[in-house]
Design a protein around this nucleic acid. Structure first.
Lengths: 358, 358
DNA sequence: CGTGCGACTTCTAACGTTGAATACAGTGAT
DNA sequence: ATCACTGTATTCAACGTTAGAAGTCGCACG
């Protein structure tokens, strides 16, 4: 009850940050008792606990993370490495990962790799300084073998399969992905059922041999082949709106004339939106002249004009699984690395003939 | 030259993480020399440095952040607290902050507050655990006086003026903002020059008395008053696409009939896109029937249909200034808190009669 | 030949925290 | 009164790093 005269629970600010010892002195107990109060490590008499708590509030004490981490050997920090946060899909992903991590008492640190191989290598090694408990990685430039080879002791979970071995070989690290081939088949079947027959694909990249784009293209090609329809693929420089615009701008003549394409499967929503932008500029109507479909289920597509049909991954499940796998390895699990599939669903909207939607 | 037999620069992985002492043993030098090599603290002979470096690479040694931070009293971590990363503006902002921080040797940790007052208070106190060197905060629920009062010893920089005192009083913390009143006047003038006379505003919020939305509304109202035109404001539940859609959906009759509004100033791009979505659903054409303008300069607006006129803040400058201010206070500057303005520009696109654009 | 310098080592201490082991009451049973 | 016991509270040591001081060694230079 030795409140100071200014009354209330006044926060006292001093130059130096208070340590557990300052609190101990203020509460007239040993610093270990303060630690026990903070961490619930050992039983503390109610009256003592209150006294300590009051001192903590008064001094504005908060445990120092460096000291704690050093002692505990854990930082409760997880990094999420993605190509670029401005891409809506990765923002959605980051959001889901942040939530999943927070639910488990972890904090997320975001690293943008810009698909730079050198940077990805540094990330795989754990950021030059040993700070993290785990890493969730959405690589773009390097394969998972490269990364695991470069990699350090850090528990690492991969997202997307820029890195997935096509040959069915064992994964070098845990992966969490949607079934890209299957979803691409569904998406393409959807267009065929809607009566389209000259269906293009946008989003292969020269530099990739087994990435997401390649797998989606594979599913697309399988569906077309089953129906005896012709396939045609267009490369995209980047998986972005400008990338989609540039790619389609370069081949716009394929959408006019007698053999004009009447549908376009795009490797993601951004490419689709960039493509639609150019199609519109060329006087083509979506979906009347060209049906368009994308991936990722970003909110954009629900408000675009026309609204965009898309394959939406179950990001919540993906993030939770990724975080659990990473933290599992933090706690010493040594289960052999696996590829884990999470769900997806096709959301039909205007761009393939669906309704406006909400 | 005591390479092991497997040759090359093989990465050796052991159970325990190597420490500076392990490296020292491997390189046959004192641990102090290793430290000197890592930090460049003292001159080391080139040959020795190489030997140490080889040991570092071989063992995969990376300095332990906890130990280092504890000793140095710095973590080189900065937090960016924003309402939600999925909102494109905040993703753009995060990107800019991450870049600016990285250029200064800092890493960014992102916290989503969801505009929750309790959470914002915890953030202002520095996250329960003393981990950060500084905080860049885009508050939504609380005023800056609340936050500074709740706040701890952490250098804090505010973005946006959910918190800016209207009375011209001294700021309680550093702020970095664009001139919202002026930019709103420009935006509104732009519509007036384009011949619009019944101009609505979307994006006031009941709970705010001096936030961004309020300031933009102020500039809007000033411009209309100067031209003797009537003003009408619509509240928005959230600054999001669904928020904009819901808000305009509720007042859609104001856009039809004899007194129909012919322009809409929206407090941000997301509201504008949500609004355009509903207008389209109601059979109204943008810009022919209603001109629409937003804020933030997000990429969406450059690919929407129609493309969206917007006020784009200079995010690069904003982020750099914010980071510099935060780090300045880390290094002990005690300049009195100020409001710093950064530039903005009006980008005219289709939604107010401009061209399609790139 | 000593002096001075560069390169390195050794030693000490400290950052703030917490697990383990230990001390100390007070209580109740014997 | 003695002993064991339980509930509290304390002391000790260690996590990995780096700053500083002081000392060692060899070599070049005056």
């Amino acid at each position: 009850m030795s409140e100071d005269r200014t009354g209330e629970v006044a926060t006292v600010r001093s130059a130096r940050r208070p340590t557990v010892k300052d609190v101990a002195a203020a509460a007239d107990v040993s610093w270990k008792t303060v630690s026990n109060v903070v961490n619930g490590t050992a039983p503390v008499r109610a009256s003592t606990r209150e006294r300590v708590q009051r001192a903590i509030d008064q001094l504005g004490y908060r445990p120092n993370a460096a000291g704690r981490n050093l002692r505990r050997g854990r930082s409760r920090l997880l990094a999420l490495a993605i190509p670029e946060i401005r891409l809506a899909y990765f923002a959605d992903l980051a959001h889901a990962v942040i939530l999943a991590a927070k639910a488990r008492g972890y904090t997320v640190l975001i690293d943008e790799t810009f698909a730079d191989p050198a940077h990805e290598r540094v990330v795989a090694q754990g950021f030059q300084v040993d700070l993290l408990d785990g890493l969730i990685f959405s690589p773009q430039a390097l394969s998972d073998r490269d990364l695991v080879a470069a990699g350090g002791r850090l528990p690492m979970v991969m997202l997307g399969e820029a890195t997935l071995p096509l040959d069915g070989g064992e994964a070098a690290a845990d992966h969490v992905v949607i079934d890209n081939v299957a979803s691409a088949r569904e998406a393409t079947e959807h267009l065929i059922e809607a009566g389209r027959s000259r269906i293009g694909f946008l989003g292969v990249r020269e530099t990739e041999t087994n990435g997401t784009g390649v797998l989606r293209h594979t599913g697309y090609a399988m569906a077309l082949q089953e129906h005896g329809l012709p396939a045609v693929a267009f490369p995209a420089p980047t998986y972005s709106r400008p990338g989609g615009a540039a790619a389609i701008g370069a081949v716009i003549e394929r959408f006019t004339g007698p053999d004009a394409l009447d549908a376009l499967v795009c490797a993601n929503d951004l490419l689709a939106i960039g493509a639609m932008h150019i199609l519109r500029g060329a006087g083509l109507r979506v979906p009347q002249d060209v049906a368009v479909i994308g991936w990722d289920g970003t909110e954009d597509g629900n408000y675009s004009n026309p609204t965009l049909t898309t394959v939406a991954p179950d990001l919540g499940a993906l993030a939770e699984l990724a975080v659990d796998l990473a933290l599992g390895r933090v706690d010493g699990s040594t289960a052999s690395p696996q590829v884990h599939l999470v769900g997806h669903r096709l959301i039909v909207r205007e761009s393939t003939g669906g309704a406006l939607g909400g």
